[in-house]
């Protein structure tokens, strides 16, 4: 799905531009779930925006869904395949009702009207917003707005959805709603890139990529990151409760593959 080879990205900082990321190599296969993390301002957002053509790498080669993003014409085409759910729930509703919001993406694709309307209702049902199809957007909760944003990605039939800290401004219920929705899509075959700062969400992901100091510091499984790498400690992360219990078990001689990563794993130990 994504083939990034030695890419560099520059970002805006006040008036001048500076290089935020350098020499990034990452391959993401179709159907994978990858969690991406890194401190605020480390260039996560610049990187993922380059995956759907909103940013252009200043160096290296980037191909997404088989499209070479060095070519300007592909930067529009890639949006058919890769969609983003942004962090701020308020800043991504373009339509004044959920119905119109989902319609916006379909209108851009030039779908014919009858099919479009049927598809909108299908999607609203999929994201659990059928009962709010014609509600004013300003009356939706943060969680509902994020579900709507996921719906907009579905409208474009995205093969990959990037969640850019999409749950960070939500309450626990909204958060688990979006996570469940994303997991459902993943199990149905959608590639997911899940950007997060939350340790539990990281630990639950099958593959983790860590950005820092302008480069990719880690790309691998959660167990090796939390139980054998010194990176979390070097980055000053506070391990999640499950990992702290796991570290104790590790000291008591448990093999790596039995160590817990999530609260769920922890409960299953007893």
């Amino acid at each position: 799905m994504i083939r990034a080879h030695n890419i560099s990205l520059s970002g805006r900082e006040g008036q001048h531009r500076r290089t935020v990321l350098q020499g990034i190599n990452i391959h993401i296969e179709p159907g994978e779930w990858v969690a991406l993390t890194g401190a605020n301002g480390c260039g996560k957002t610049s990187l993922i925006r380059s995956f759907n053509g909103l940013n252009t790498p200043s160096g290296g080669s980037l191909s997404v869904a088989g499209l070479d993003l060095r070519l300007p014409e592909n930067r529009m085409a890639v949006k058919q395949h890769v969609q983003l759910v942004f962090q701020n729930p308020e800043a991504q509703t373009v339509g004044s009702t959920p119905f119109e919001d989902i319609a916006f993406g379909l209108e851009n694709r030039g779908l014919e009207r009858e099919r479009m309307i049927a598809r909108i209702h299908e999607i609203l049902q999929q994201v659990g917003l059928s009962h709010k199809a014609e509600a004013e957007a300003s009356t939706l909760s943060g969680g509902e707005r994020q579900r709507l944003a996921v719906g907009c990605c579905l409208a474009l039939e995205a093969k990959m959805i990037i969640f850019d800290e999409a749950t960070s401004m939500l309450d626990p219920e909204g958060r688990s709603d979006i996570l469940e929705l994303a997991q459902g899509l993943w199990q149905a075959g959608t590639t997911i890139l899940w950007v997060t700062q939350r340790m539990e969400e990281l630990a639950a992901s099958p593959r983790i990529a860590v950005l820092g100091k302008g480069q990719l510091l880690y790309d691998g499984s959660p167990r090796s990151l939390f139980y054998t790498s010194e990176l979390p400690e070097n980055l000053g992360w506070l391990p999640s409760p499950a990992v702290r219990v796991g570290k104790l078990l590790q000291k008591q001689g448990w093999p790596l593959h039995l160590l817990p990563l999530t609260g769920q794993d922890l409960e299953e130990l007893l």
């Binding site: 925006r49 529009m76 058919q80 701020n88 800043a91 991504q92 373009v94």
Partner: peptide
């Protein structure tokens, strides 16, 4: 942010 969202949706 809205302009980015509009652009991102093709």
């Amino acid at each position: 942010e809205l302009a980015t969202a509009v652009e991102s949706r093709g």
